[in-house]
Design a protein around this nucleic acid. Sequence first.
DNA 1: GCCCTAAATGTTATCGTTAACGCCTTTCCG
DNA 2: CGGAAAGGCGTTAACGATAACATTTAGGGC
Lengths: 346, 346
Amino acid sequence: MVKDPSELSVAKSRRLPVMGDVARLAGVSHMTVSRVLNEPESVRPNTRERVLLAIEQLGYRRNSAARSLVTRRSQTLGVVCFDTTLYGPASMLNGIEHATEDAGYAVSVASLRRPTAEAATQAVQRLVDQSVDGLVLIAPQAAEAMAFVRALPTDVPVVAVENALPNVTSVSVDQVLGARLVTEHLLALGHETVHHVRGPSDWSEANGRVDGWLAALEENGRAVPRELVGDWSAKSGYVAGQKLARDRRATAVFAANDSMALGVLRALHEAGARVPEDVSVVGFDDIPEAAFMTPPLTTVSQPFRDVGRRSIEILLDEIEGGEERGASSVIPPELVIRNSTSSRRT
Amino acid sequence: MVKDPSELSVAKSRRLPVMGDVARLAGVSHMTVSRVLNEPESVRPNTRERVLLAIEQLGYRRNSAARSLVTRRSQTLGVVCFDTTLYGPASMLNGIEHATEDAGYAVSVASLRRPTAEAATQAVQRLVDQSVDGLVLIAPQAAEAMAFVRALPTDVPVVAVENALPNVTSVSVDQVLGARLVTEHLLALGHETVHHVRGPSDWSEANGRVDGWLAALEENGRAVPRELVGDWSAKSGYVAGQKLARDRRATAVFAANDSMALGVLRALHEAGARVPEDVSVVGFDDIPEAAFMTPPLTTVSQPFRDVGRRSIEILLDEIEGGEERGASSVIPPELVIRNSTSSRRT
DNA sequence: GCCCTAAATGTTATCGTTAACGCCTTTCCG
DNA sequence: CGGAAAGGCGTTAACGATAACATTTAGGGC
């Protein structure tokens, strides 16, 4: 079965081994090698072993460019994201990467510098040019939705995370529910109403949290204080906190994320207001630092990694199952009560 | 110049346009189209315009798989990283992504689940299989160094970030200097010595910070307290802080990152020690939250994004310039003094 | 004008894989 | 035991771009 020994030399040639080399060494055709790699059952155990051995000996690895040229699949998923420095997006990205790896796909990331339609369109275009097999969008700016969709070629499956785009499957955490839990928790503690430091208005998460907060207040017939606007940063929370401390009427503050809550805590502390004795403060996200703030922060825990994983599951279903876009899924968050909230001083 | 009209139909066929289609429409050969795209100056303005117009009309885009098959370059850089949920790595990754995008490359990310040699080797292998043109390693675990290097095919340029691997160009922040600045700052405030909550021993950053701290203490002839070990998390800082609070002798604590510093602050607060009146605390990293902790944290600012950018610059030099590995570069960090440190109570 | 050289363009081969199809064995049944 | 059906492999042709070489065109000096 073995051919002329001279052909078998495993001499380190400059070029990497290709299928033909493996085939020659194993005494079969390159097509058989391909079959061993793609549908092992279709080749007899005997020859399969020989081929596998040859592959091992030569240290052969398939050329992915050649594969994707002919199969029209790159085994790569594209992720469009905005600020992966924030804890939430970073965690979701992490979940995505792990899930993607498990599925045998690679991840190509396009990070938006600014959340503009133009940047988004370019990013999608770049990923599509790389012929990714699917796309995950973690760019929670609602305003960009249309741009994305317009730029999308119809045949690439897409899943949006934390962003309901028309006609695109999405995975998200129930922001409205989370905000409700927070607000109701504070009302239950006896607070007359709850002030809110919201996130940027072009983020869908921020809007969802506002909605939940509003709904809870209205259902309980409470006055709705004017909302303060932050940009997710501790600094913006600090500025908002200063305003709240100045007017002195707030006894309960719901910040739309933990970083802003930290800023609020800082501002209140500087103004001489005690938390939770004078003012209760709640955050959102449950970043690892939340439990160690002063005081430990009551917040809402979001299963970021699970969201990332889930988005990949859905995406792969669409890609491999060829199914029509599956149902969007919404994951519930959980309220984590710590020491930054207490019943209102009477 | 224009051929048979029937051939020109821009009818939406199922398949995407290829170079040949553009060529036909422009009345040139596919090779001329290729030239227009790759070396525009080599084709006459007149024909170039025609080709460009045809490209526009057809919405033509080059097939990257075909390109990389023949050029043996994928225009993709691979990044191996460990925990991108941490602020530092996330920021560097961000810098890398932006710089890579600017250079017209794509980024493929392989995220290590655990910092083991096996996982690292697999990750590198996966990226190499995708035929990335270069590799950035943001995996500061020294123990894995050998594994990486062994798994590396000799011909893929590599740059390591925050990790000095033998024979690999690296970019890093001067951790030793940063730790020195911290320690000297505290000694200058009159503290007898400085306690240290270090990071995991397999992280090179953690070791660098220990070295700087030790050096500063020794140069000043101070006693070296036993170091406490954390894992970068606020929780581990909290545990360390409890120990420090218990023995009551510490007046100055240098935590190896801001999250652990937060934990230390929390533990001291619970133990009734005031910061900075009773104990001074310093962190490292200058995360955006540091300025809003209670009290605002004195820390060391690291130019993470710049490190990321720089690593790409170097990598691209090696790839495109074909240069031998350039000099490794070390970037100095800066001490940021806030309110968590003060002169020792006398 | 003619020839020579350089610039502009075209032709053909090639990258390394999978798809499509065909041939030769087996195998199994009547 | 003949023949059909299936299984196992081989041969050849894509895939869509660039490389290498061949050819045509343009320009300039005499």
